[in-house]
Design a protein around this nucleic acid. Structure first.
Lengths: 337, 337
DNA sequence: CTGAAAGCGCTTACAG
DNA sequence: CTGAAAGCGCTTACAG
């Protein structure tokens, strides 16, 4: 009885080349297959003639490797991150010979198990797209995972990649102080418990300290990485007559809100108040004036995480953590021309 | 000899529930499996106890269905499209019970076959991420594919989804003429041979004609869907003293360039010259003044294409083409308050 | 340098 | 309502 799918199988190739399937398999998989030159030539010919591509499922069933990795995404927000993230992850996946499966976390915890040991060899987990408990279950069964932009839950030694939030912020505040003589620099926090925000605040503190500027608690406010909330905070400050000559907005979205509040109050940016962000989101270029900010390469993060995952799958180990460098993107909102 | 992977198999479940694997398989796959209520209960219990998830590769090998669809992306540009695209595609994939494999087209045509019959049941091809020849090969072997944002090569009846470029542009030009009394409306073309641009130009023409405005070839220029080239064209026009009171920039990126040229020349937008775009890219909100443009839902396009693909895979047929509606996004650059 | 055979974990006629 | 058995297309010891 003829097969339904028209695709040639390894047996077809073996028959055409006049060798066993074992030999074909070896030629397909081993870098330096132990076959005579002429046999090899015949096999290559047969593969080309039939346009043979090994069946992924069959291959993974017998090798117990799926040759695929997963990328698990949260279901909301992060829009600006995806394109470069995907680019980095996809590049590293291909480079390491893996297919890429993508899924985004559904709200209902219902039996839906989009990515896991049943269909991948490992997964890159972006931010909070998986619960601590599920992560723990993976760790227990030794299923490879790498966290992107998230610290592993306490006690779980899961490899992860993070940005150098602290150093990036430190450099930014240094710049404000040293280049532009700012002394009353406000800081807008991100969401409660947000790790990025935590580290950024540390960088802010370190910079002030290094320049012998006393910290003023009144200058630390809440921006929530959000345009509206940042605007509100700055409006409150303005109303209260708070004295400040610069604000580190926490991230770029917040910086947009900060600028709105400042413009509405007739303040000049950067002459009266400098405004800086973090992320170098697309919007940064279009701020008025263009926003000075801190950039971390998202593509690099994706690529690094995927590379680590590939290592983890292949060799069984990889570095515990990768800390990616950031870079100052100087535009005009800090006072630079 | 013990299995290496700790994951339970269908046999483990069968043993625990005291039934055959056949029965387990039926319970896993059939909506209304022919089993007694108590057997069913025991089986569900066993599945839950073991935390059983069917092995994807084994399942697809024996069913000759991968239960995965692919999304093939071009390797450059389109950044603003990906997040909503992915959202739509992923949603429809999950809804139809498919895993989602993502790959982006590599430049080297080398044997790399990221997505195809060997690992998916069908693929959504975004724009020009696959050559006509490769597409033809798929058609010939009846491998399901749906084109997103691309017309099938002549002679190939491949289902595809497109935006209503013509009607969207038509509505925009109508608005400029009817609401704002514009008569000298310039049009910026996209890249040579670009289909979107072609249809948009048709919409432009239809609108002029409907309002008995004679077409002036001098008002049709080249923008290439690109900020810099659009700026150059408008600068040339200004230098040449061309008379125009509005410009349809072709897309939003071009509109940014158009605005730059206009601002630099001291023209007021929209009083002297109205500027409108197409896409409603993120940048549109941040233009000065905010850009009036035409929006097509990218997520909807992705979802529709994926839905069509699922139908094609499941039923063997689907509509030949889906034409997605567009919508005017009125902001300030057209003259509206 | 080469091959026969078992087995990966499922699904699916077929039989009862 | 239930099961035994063949088979999906590969890989991988094992043997020579």
């Amino acid at each position: 009885m003829p097969k339904k799918t028209g695709s040639p199988t390894i047996r077809d190739v073996a028959r055409l080349a006049g060798v066993s399937v074992t030999t074909i398999s070896r030629v397909m998989n081993e870098p330096d297959p132990p076959v005579s030159a002429e046999t090899l030539a015949r096999i290559h010919q047969a593969i080309a003639d039939l346009n043979y591509v090994p069946h992924a499922a069959a291959r993974s069933l017998s090798s117990s490797r799926s040759n695929a990795i997963g990328l698990l995404l949260p279901h909301v927000g992060w829009d600006d991150y995806f394109p470069p993230l995907l680019r980095g992850v996809e590049a590293a996946a291909v480079e390491n010979g893996f297919d890429l499966l993508i899924a985004s976390r559904r709200e209902n915890g219902s039996g839906a198990r989009p990515l896991g040991p049943h269909n991948t060899d490992g997964v890159v987990v972006f931010t909070d797209s998986l619960s601590d408990a599920e992560l723990a279950a993976w760790v227990e069964k030794k299923f490879p995972a790498v966290l992107l932009h998230r610290t592993p839950p306490a006690g779980l030694g899961i490899p992860h990649v993070q940005y150098e939030n602290k150093d990036g912020t430190r450099a930014m505040i240094d710049h404000l102080i040293e280049k532009h003589g700012k002394r009353r620099i406000a800081f807008l926090r991100g969401p409660d418990g947000n790790e990025d925000s935590h580290w950024r605040e540390l960088g802010y503190r370190q910079s002030l300290e290094a320049h012998q500027i006393a910290e003023d608690p009144a200058l630390v406010g809440f921006g929530n990485f959000n345009e509206d909330e940042a605007r509100n905070t700055v409006e409150d400050w303005l109303r209260a007559g708070l004295d400040f000559d610069a604000v580190f907005a926490g991230d770029d979205d917040s910086a947009v809100g900060v600028m709105q509040a400042l413009h509405a109050a007739g303040k000049r940016i950067p002459e009266d108040v400098a405004v800086v962000g973090f992320d170098d989101a697309p919007v940064a270029r279009f701020c008025n004036p263009p926003l000075t900010t801190v950039r971390a390469s998202i593509a690099e993060a994706g690529q690094t995480a995927t590379q680590m995952l590939a290592e983890l799958i292949t060799t069984g180990k990889t570095q515990f953590m990768a800390l990616l460098p950031t870079e100052l993107v100087i535009r005009r909102s800090c006072g630079c021309a």
